[in-house]
Design a protein around this nucleic acid. Structure first.
Length: 271
DNA sequence: CTTTGCACCTGTTGGC
DNA sequence: TGCCAACAGGTGCAAA
């Protein structure tokens, strides 16, 4: 998916154009994505968008009728602006008709989610209730990370992608932050020292912050709401660079599979 | 309880 | 050029 920086970039793009706009109606072009879409979402109309929030990789749209629309982009989801007169594109599944302009949820693989809940209470939404801390808040630091990894035998890379440990770190930024922290992705999570968890927490914050500032990464599917591309992909130090040289020490970057996901690292810089 | 592996679905890419 | 296997940013759930 879009990882946290991509979702945050989308949130900001939407906020700029449609915060306080009036939603005139919603078109559901199919009944389900990964899960069924509540038919009531298709009845939402004539209500103002009060707030656009992000929790982990979920987007939350609060409307002034007390309903909150939840969107998750999955692996291939996009939210794009479109002129209301433009015919929907292939895989445009949900059309949000705002005054003058549509926001369209396009998702080829349909791993995404569109849902709706009354009120905005996080603990009442199952998908949000068990989530760990946001990585860019003070609640997430080396002390917390050390505690939450205690006794874990899984690879540190798997652990930081576990949403109950910390949210928002996906497959790209997991490899990138471990490279920056100088930690091998296969290391047992529970064996990290406090110095290492301090370093890793800091590197996760740094890499996510830089990626947000760059407008996210652009790989195959991800685009911002205005259709433009993010630039962080140019700054990958290890992701997708297997066989190329480490920018720090010149060693060939390696690729392994950890937790069924491609994982990239420098065998010299990371220990 | 933790950990692992699969499933969901379509589009693109790279090797032959 | 064409074909087909492998792979892709996530996460919920079953099985071990």
């Amino acid at each position: 998916m879009p990882e946290l920086p991509e979702v945050e970039t989308v949130r900001r793009g939407l906020e700029k154009k449609i915060l306080h706009a009036t939603l005139r109606g919603v078109t559901l072009r199919r009944p389900d994505l990964r899960f069924p879409i509540p038919p009531a979402l298709g009845n939402l109309q004539n209500t103002r968008l009060n707030a656009l929030r992000r929790r982990a990789k979920y987007l939350l749209m609060d409307f002034d009728n007390g309903q909150t629309v939840l969107v998750h982009l999955g692996m291939s989801g996009r939210l794009v602006f479109a002129d209301a007169a433009t015919p929907p594109a292939k895989h445009d599944h949900v059309l949000f008709h705002f005054d003058g302009e549509d926001v369209r949820f396009n998702d080829a693989r349909r791993f995404g989610v569109a849902d709706m809940y009354p009120t905005v209470q996080e603990h009442t939404v199952p998908a949000l209730a068990a989530l760990g801390p946001e990585p860019l808040t003070d609640a997430f630091d080396g002390k917390y990370l050390l505690t939450s990894l205690k006794g874990k035998k899984s690879a540190i890379k798997t652990a930081i992608m576990d949403n109950t440990v910390v949210v928002g770190v996906g497959n790209i930024y997991a490899s990138e932050s471990l490279f920056r922290a100088g930690i091998l992705p296969a290391r047992a999570a529970g064996k990290l020292t406090r110095a290492q968890t301090d370093k890793l927490a800091g590197c996760i914050k740094d890499v996510l912050t830089e990626a947000i500032a760059a407008g996210g990464s652009s790989l195959k599917d991800y685009v911002q709401t205005d259709g433009s591309l993010g630039y962080f992909a140019h700054r990958f130090r290890v992701y997708g660079r297997d066989g190329q040289l480490c920018t720090v020490c010149g060693t060939s970057i390696r690729k392994v599979i950890i937790g069924q996901r491609s994982t990239f690292f420098c065998p010299v810089c990371q220990k």
